Simulated assay, not measured.
Amino acid sequence: MSVCSSNPSCGEDVDELEAVSWYHYDLSRHAAEALLLSNGVDGSFLLRNSNKGPDCFAISVRAKDSVKHFNVRRQGGKYYFGFNDFATLQDFTSHLANQPLLGSETGNLIVLRVPYPRQVEEPSIYESVCVHTAMQTGRHESDLVPSAPSLGTKEGYLVKQGAIIKNWKQRWFTLNRNELKYFKDKMFVEPIRTLDLTACSAVQFDYSQERVNCFCLVFPERTFYLCAKSGVEADEWIKILRWKLSQIKKGR
């Protein structure tokens, strides 16, 4: 069974997933995060193609101010999701209809509450152009360089070392666009501090502290020392933070 996601109406070879109203074909990870963060609610999810290859998909779900992505694989007509396998597409979608609770390796618990539809009603109202004049001259199509901040979201508890008194306190961290915020607790709305990653020069594992699973973020005025609950979680934070820095260096 081949995936015909680039053109939903491409003749007889139509994927059975076309009938699923919340299957978003070739929606990218970047676009899925932007869509769910701007229009979704906590627990909104969608199914999309994964870049891992044919018959590989991803469920993207909004978890408060971040978006998590989970692998789905299809083989021999069966669907494999987490520790479960489903004999048919109907079995798979029926499972999701019962609002399953997912636990990630980082310990976060997420409920898949409501699917985000592929087709959404939008107003047929467009602005009329009243002024149209060039602000520069001599530029060409090659001068149009697309630019957008990298999305890549993450959140979770980390233990942070104090700046003056070197004690360790648990804080709730959220990563969104180029901002790493930490809060006194998950329930607080206002952050204690917001770190601008455009000023961060390095993210790396740290072995100087008498703690395990530690890493640090190097800023001009200070190095922040953080510890995760597990090596897996620390590695996830380091990977996504390093990816953010690489995107910043590329000017994205």
Rank of each mutant, 00 (worst) to 15 (best):
S147P: 01
S147V: 13
A148L: 05
A148T: 01
A148V: 05
P149C: 06
S150G: 01
L151W: 04
L151Q: 11
L151S: 07
T153E: 07
T153P: 06
T153S: 13
T153C: 09
K154S: 02
K154N: 04
E155S: 12
L158R: 03
L158W: 02
V159C: 07
V159M: 07
K160F: 06
K160T: 05
K160R: 12
G162C: 05
G162M: 01
G162S: 08
G162W: 06
A163K: 13
A163S: 11
I164T: 12
I164V: 14
I165T: 14
I165A: 15
K166M: 03
N167W: 11
W168L: 09
K169A: 04
K169T: 03
R171N: 02
R171K: 11
W172C: 05
W172A: 04
F173Y: 12
F173V: 05
T174S: 02
T174Y: 02
T174V: 03
T174C: 07
L175C: 04
L175E: 00
N176P: 10
N176I: 13
N176H: 14
N176Q: 15
N176R: 14
R177I: 02
R177A: 12
R177Q: 14
N178Y: 15
E179H: 11
E179V: 12
L180K: 01
L180V: 00
L180T: 06
K181G: 06
Y182A: 00
K184Q: 13
K184H: 11
K184L: 13
D185W: 11
K186A: 13
K186G: 04
M187A: 14
F188R: 14
F188G: 10
F188Y: 11
F188M: 13
V189F: 06
V189M: 08
V189T: 09
E190K: 07
E190V: 05
E190L: 01
E190T: 08
P191G: 00
P191W: 03
I192R: 10
I192N: 10
I192E: 10
I192D: 07
I192K: 10
R193Q: 14
R193E: 14
T194L: 05
T194N: 02
T194W: 03
L195I: 12
L195T: 06
L195C: 06
D196F: 03
D196S: 08
D196L: 04
L197S: 01
L197N: 00
A199L: 09
A199I: 06
A199M: 06
C200P: 03
C200N: 00
C200D: 02
C200A: 05
C200V: 01
A202K: 14
A202L: 13
A202E: 15
A202I: 07
V203C: 10
Q204Y: 04
Q204G: 08
D206I: 04
Y207A: 15
Y207S: 15
S208D: 12
E210W: 05
E210P: 01
E210L: 08
R211H: 15
R211P: 07
R211I: 09
V212N: 14
N213G: 11
C214I: 05
C214H: 01
C214A: 09
C214M: 08
C214E: 03
F215R: 00
F215S: 00
F215V: 01
F215A: 02
C216I: 00
C216L: 09
L217T: 10
L217M: 15
V218T: 12
V218D: 08
F219A: 06
F219Q: 08
P220I: 09
P220Y: 13
E221D: 15
R222Q: 11
R222S: 03
R222A: 06
R222G: 00
F224R: 08
